[in-house]
Nucleic acid binder design. Structure first.
Lengths: 401, 401
DNA sequence: TAGATTTTGTTCGACTCTCGAACTATATTC
DNA sequence: GAATATAGTTCGAGAGTCGAACAAAATCTA
């Protein structure tokens, strides 16, 4: 039960019932395909005649197509319906420091084409470069009906102005990506923070949070980001800044964070934090003294994980420390919104067997309330950020308005 | 844009449009009364003929009544419409340790009658006593059409089982209040955590969070509770446990909390924490040693606030310490869900002039992101918990399904 | 003072949509 | 070949909104 938004009233017309039921049917086809009209009627509760009318319309508009004929122990054989994935396509962009991924995806979220370009230092130059790539991509597939462009960004997006704000990793300042891209391509552009994009991926394509309507995604990379879904809907917060758990102090006298605050969670539990800590302990171990750092090259986080697999004790100690701090921060996430599921995204999940027990030990110590939050690790090779960018556009057709 | 809940499909029938538009009109009358049919058509966007049909129905069902005739510079005079507050009434209950308040409220949330009984030690005995009071109340006003009973409780309510769980202040264990009360009165019973009930009060009757759809209410009393509204809707979380910011550790080596964890926020910022600290500093000051506590009687929190007004330096220091810790915890609330407004509820708000500047100093130190959360103090004499209990029932008629 | 103008509120026919019964189509079983 | 079962279509009844036309009631203007 939600309060009506009286500043944005949407009254129902005679077409509203069709709009709602059409979305019901389209969603059922999406999730249950292949499915017959009779089954659609059974699991939606609509009359068979109504389902026929709606599917006729959906087939005419090419969202749905008829497929194989099924067979039953007796009676007339049903005609199966499928989502017509060729109906339209969406462009997804995963913008991050260093590299930016572009993909073309069909209605089911499957990638049809993919490329990767380097992310420029200066936003204006990069936007022009991005526009050129988009134009080439669109021209290469002129027969496709493009539904829009979704972008996941390493920062927050103000829901009012749709500008990129608070993206310290990019160091771009406040940038308007939407307007130039829309003007150049003629397509609608939607942007969302990467962690929230991962949450959308789970909401729309997810296996692990199947049917969950309250969950959080925690991305662990250079920093830590949290995206939240509450009541089946994204949590934006003021200026789009909800989910900045990464910048909550967990130690008042801790090291300074790039945000200006002291002892933020991500100063202890991010990939960068782990690399810093590893450098500190390994240099200390070698020379017996502190402050000899910088003489050996810092490993990448992937290097660190490889060292753990090779049995390096200092690397292992570093990852275990990271697991403890991850647990401490996840305890905050759990206590605040009590999600059914937390999905952990990042390279760190490849060391899950080392992480999980220590992380849970820390969480159980801190969460003394009788709730049952599951924590699952996501396979980062499935590109959840990029798929979330696609979901950003697809939800317009499958979501409730 | 939210995802459809495929486990709980609600298709649209031919009456759905009327149901939606009826709620639109009813809400507009509630918030804009007195208002004419023509104005309703203008601000809803519906046709005048449709508004007439809907209002006719609402008048017939006694939700709305015609009132005075307005006057305009020219043209036919409009007939004003009002909410018919006598149409129905709601019983609100504020259950808390020690005392429980009962109230009868009309459709606008105004109290018609009120009483207070002592909260029993044993749930079963108390429930029977409560039933007797409810029966007497209902019999005393037999002409009223009762819509239901809303209860705000000092704990959390599992949205699935509707049982009271995690209420350490009551020490009742897991109790089913709903079933016996529904059986005894024949009315539907809804329960909600007190902090969330306060948030509902603000959502439906609020002046300060006017039109806000994302905010949090923080109740400071024996402990600290947080209730959240996101996208105009309550946040439940798993087992109804969302909002337990009060039990997030802010100091790993802090004193033990009654929840079992160490250094929880409420161990530092609650009324009880302030009383404990005052006792410690005033006894130390007197004897020069610690651990002489218990020899003088502990003041109530209201006593402490009076001492501040009287210029007692140790009481002032105690309240300022409380303000610092409140700021620290509010910073967590801000960073996590980025609310537009935080509403602070509790006796502590009577010392707002001492609290506010110190609290903000702490928040500004910790929140280095460009958001604009307002923090306002609520007048606890308006009984937000009790009015939230009423809102719990009223939202069924005014909210969106 | 009569007609023009303006605004409120109602009436009515056209259109959209769902429901549900009846009907057609197609399969298996006895 | 008749009975039975299931899928999908057709069609009329009922509920709703829209929008134009109309009725009602007030002020303005000549």
């Amino acid at each position: 039960m939600r309060k009506m938004d009286l500043n944005n009233i949407r009254v129902a017309t005679s077409e509203t019932a069709r709009d709602i039921n059409r979305r019901v049917v389209l969603n059922l086809i999406r999730t249950h395909q292949p499915i017959s009209r009779a089954d659609l009627a059974r699991c939606s509760g609509l009359q068979r005649s109504t389902v026929s009318a709606i599917t006729e319309q959906l087939i005419e508009e090419r969202w749905v197509r008829e497929g194989a004929i099924g067979h039953l122990p007796r009676g007339r054989k049903p005609t199966f319906l499928h989502l017509n994935t060729d109906r339209a396509a969406v462009i997804g962009i995963n913008l991050r420091p260093g590299r930016t991924d572009l993909a073309l995806a069909d209605l089911s979220g499957r990638f049809l084409a993919q490329q990767s370009i380097s992310t420029g230092e200066h936003p204006k130059v990069f936007i022009n470069e991005l526009i050129n790539h988009l134009r080439t991509l669109i021209k290469a597939n002129p027969q496709i009906d493009y539904e829009g462009i979704g972008i996941s960004v390493p920062g927050r997006v103000d829901p009012k102005t749709q500008r990129l704000i608070f993206a310290p990793n990019l160091n771009w300042g406040e940038v308007d990506l939407k307007t130039p891209l829309e003007r150049a391509t003629g397509l609608t552009v939607e942007m969302e923070n990467a962690a929230t994009a991962c949450a959308l991926t789970e909401l729309w394509f997810g296996q692990q949070a199947e049917g969950a309507r309250n969950f959080a995604t925690v991305t662990v990379s250079e920093g830590i980001g949290v995206g939240m879904i509450v009541n089946g809907e994204r949590v934006y917060g003021n200026s789009g800044l909800a989910g900045e758990f990464g910048h909550i102090s967990i130690q008042d006298a801790g090291p300074q964070c790039r945000c200006g605050n002291l002892g933020c969670w991500e100063v202890f539990a991010s990939n960068n934090a782990a690399i810093d800590h590893y450098m500190q302990v390994s240099v200390n171990g070698r020379s017996g003294k502190a402050s000899t750092r910088g003489q050996i090259a810092a490993p990448s986080f992937e290097d660190l994980l490889r060292l753990v697999e090779q049995g390096n004790l200092k690397a292992l100690e570093t990852v275990e420390r990271m697991a403890r701090y991850l647990g401490q921060g996840l305890a905050m996430v759990i206590m605040s919104i009590a999600p059914d599921i937390i999905l952990l995204v990042g390279e760190v999940t490849t060391a899950w067997s080392h992480i999980e027990p220590i992380m849970w030990q820390e969480i159980n110590k801190r969460c003394r309330i009788p709730l049952k939050t599951k924590i699952v690790s996501s396979d980062h090779t499935t590109q959840p950020r990029l798929r979330g960018a696609v979901a950003l556009i697809l939800q317009k057709h499958f979501g409730l308005p």
